[in-house]
Amino acid sequence: MEILLAIAIMTLGAVTLGAALGFASVKFRVEGDPLVGKIDAILPQTQCGQCGYPGCKPYAEAIAQGEAINKCPPGGAEGVQRLADLLGREVKPLDAEEQPKAAAVIDENTCIGCTLCIQACPVDAIVGAAKQMHTVLAGQCTGCTLCLPPCPVECIRMQPLAESIETWKWKHPALAAGEAARC
């Protein structure tokens, strides 16, 4: 008799806990991997595809699945560092050369208005219409260089961003002093 009671109690417990877990899995369900969002927030959103994925979000998803964290040249060494901090992985040197930040510039005398670059731009930073001159919205350009290959007349070039008083940064005093001493 007692054994039946014990079985009944255990069964009841199992059913209750199972129901609670089932409820929780429905109620507190998280859509997608929250880690992907965090990784995506660190990536520079140039959408350039240099990592081998068609955009920053796909690369973030791949990183969450175990892809290497050093494939994002626009993010630079600092981006790798921050990803490593987030994921608890080892910092690796960047897989490619770090390029200075640049924005695309269209030579408006040569542009024939083919709209190919407009279609290639991942962030809609090029305006223009068929047979009309196109131009790049400098403020929106991420410098991904995806507009360069489709241009049939090669009228687009990358111009490194100039430093202005607004974007100028103070140098690290100790590091700057060290550099000066080396020079």
Partner: peptide
């Protein structure tokens, strides 16, 4: 800020 704007534009596109 720039990255957030780029993300929004990319997703919209």
């Amino acid at each position: 800020t720039a990255a957030d704007a780029a993300r929004a534009r990319y997703e919209f596109k």
